[in-house]
């Protein structure tokens, strides 16, 4: 029996999917389409276009669909250039808690790319941003991590920034952190958590040195 010739199968007939050309201009156009599926596909394919970083960041901040946001974040992670990192850092200042936390998670996955921004982040006027910066240090394999943490607990006036740093010093701290930890206990003498965390860090450092 001969094969019947049917209509040629279209490349896709899913609404919203890949109606635009797949070049950069077409993808950027699709990134602003009405259908979330079209935006999702465009965001995914734009991972191969670092020149689209600014558009992805802009769309991330106004994107209402969580599933599209996730794809944009994933594409920005893959791109991982300076503009992508800066765009994600800018999200830390947003009121949108969900987006801010999503950006933090992505930045934690890119410690090497975030490292050049670390000095500035640790001095940021916003304590929440400084806490995030200390959090990122946890995943940063960098010879200055302990030095940065000691600076934080010696100088930062915000109790939660110091609390986050002291948690990490308990894991990575050495003898050179002891003086700063003792000073921290004096500086926050009436904060039970700081007393608890600093004592724990000192015990761990002592145990490691024994």
């Amino acid at each position: 029996m001969g094969l019947k010739k049917g209509k040629p199968t279209p490349e896709t007939d899913i609404p919203g999917e890949r109606h635009q050309a797949r070049d950069l201009d077409g993808l950027l156009q699709a990134l602003h389409a009405d259908e979330p599926m079209a935006r999702r596909w465009a965001a995914r394919d734009l991972a191969a276009h670092p020149e689209a970083t600014a558009d992805l960041v802009k769309q991330l901040r106004r994107e209402p669909e969580n599933s599209v946001r996730q794809v944009i974040l994933s594409s920005l992670t893959n791109i991982g250039n300076e503009a992508a990192i800066q765009g994600l850092i800018d999200c830390l200042y947003l009121e949108d808690a969900m987006l801010r936390n999503a950006a933090i998670d992505v930045l934690k996955e890119l410690p090497d790319q975030v490292a050049p921004f670390m000095g500035r982040l640790l001095q940021d006027p916003d304590p929440d941003v400084r806490i995030f910066a200390v959090d990122v240090l946890e995943s940063l394999r960098h010879p200055r991590v302990e030095e940065w943490l000691i600076e934080v607990i010696s100088q930062d006036a915000h109790v939660n920034v110091c609390a986050t740093a002291v948690d990490l010093l308990g894991e990575v701290g050495s003898d050179q952190a002891k003086t700063a930890l003792l000073s921290l206990k004096q500086r926050f003498a009436d904060e039970p958590y700081i007393q608890f965390a600093a004592d724990l860090a000192l015990k761990r450092i002592e145990a490691d040195g024994a």
């Binding site: 986050t164 002291v166 948690d167 958590y193 608890f196 965390a197 724990l200």
Partner: peptide
């Protein structure tokens, strides 16, 4: 996710 915070609250 912070072990020290968990331990503090546990105590």
């Amino acid at each position: 996710d912070a072990a020290t915070v968990r331990l503090y609250h546990r105590e």
